[in-house]
Design a protein around this nucleic acid. Structure first.
Ligand SMILES: [Mn+2]
Ligand SMILES: [Mn+2]
Ligand SMILES: [Zn+2]
Ligand SMILES: [Zn+2]
Lengths: 149, 149
DNA sequence: AATTTTAATGAGAATGAATCTCAAATGCAT
DNA sequence: ATGCATTTGAGATTCATTCTCATTAAAATT
């Protein structure tokens, strides 16, 4: 939490943005848990302690955290943008179950090497990977077999 | 276009859905061009010839084409869901330029092999890959250098 | 071919995530 | 402390998507 705050401070300073109370509250809430989250989750979480932080400010602040490189926009879920930490988290890919919505994470060091090669071919400079697949998780495969009987 | 229509017919029959005039018009419009498209693009395209096909029906029909395996939901662009053909198109990944929005496609046969391995580890059954990266295209890298002077 | 049954459609209303507006509040350099 | 540009909260607005429901069309049955 210490490092994140410092990076955030530096980022804001570098952009001539002010370190305000809501911006601090929001960034601390974001790093309180380590799950994927959407703006509404975050709003509810923050509201428990701070009755006066507005949804608008959260919508305005989250993109700053993205730009600062602390979080990234991840997959979309239930028609909502969802986010996850990047700072302090390994790159990983998502397997999303079409049936139950479960998200399974998996490292992808080797995959990245190949994708870097493809990108090089196109002279494309990658800033952020966005890798995953949809399908059926272990449990839902079993259910399917039962249902299709 | 012949094959797509037959597959679609079979799919509708298998689901006890009727082959209606709007459903046919929409599926033909979808396969008229080979670009990524969003619902609004499709609506405009269809409206040129058929003044009476409603937006609602397009929103209702596109998911059928997805379920039939003819198209897939692809990346999101300008806050709109976008779609692309799957039938008759190789699997590929997308490099998306953060600066100009350009979408670069690239095959990924080798990548798929690695991802299949990761999926196997998790006992996850992949139905559809969703692979890409965001960053800067060749042209925008040059522009950046100029701008940062 | 006419009738019945049932699903699908069009038009527009409703929803809801995300963005915008603007008067009031706050951070920060002096 | 003072002054001033930036940021904020609250609610209005936007706009993609979904829903509603009276009407229409497809297919099954006579
Ligand atoms: Mn994740
Ligand atoms: Mn594509
Ligand atoms: Zn599952
Ligand atoms: Zn570009």
């Amino acid at each position: 939490m210490k490092k994140e705050r410092d990076l955030y401070r530096d980022f804001l300073k570098s952009k001539d943005l002010k370190m305000t109370k809501p911006r601090l509250i929001i960034m601390e809430a974001v790093f309180e848990n380590h799950e994927h989250f959407n703006i509404d989750d975050l709003y509810e979480q923050i509201r428990k302690k701070h009755k006066n932080v507005s949804r608008a400010t959260i919508y305005r602040t989250v993109p700053l955290l993205v730009e600062a490189g602390l979080i990234k926009q991840s997959l979309r879920c239930e028609s909502k943008d969802i986010y996850e930490h990047t700072y302090g988290h390994e790159n990983h890919l998502h397997f999303i179950c079409d049936n139950c919505g479960k998200i399974i994470e998996s490292g992808f060091s080797d995959v990245a090497i190949l994708i870097d090669l493809l990108a090089k071919n196109e002279n494309f400079e990658i800033k952020e990977y966005n890798l995953g697949a949809r399908g059926l998780c272990k449990d839902c495969q079993k259910k399917r077999i039962i249902n299709e009987k």
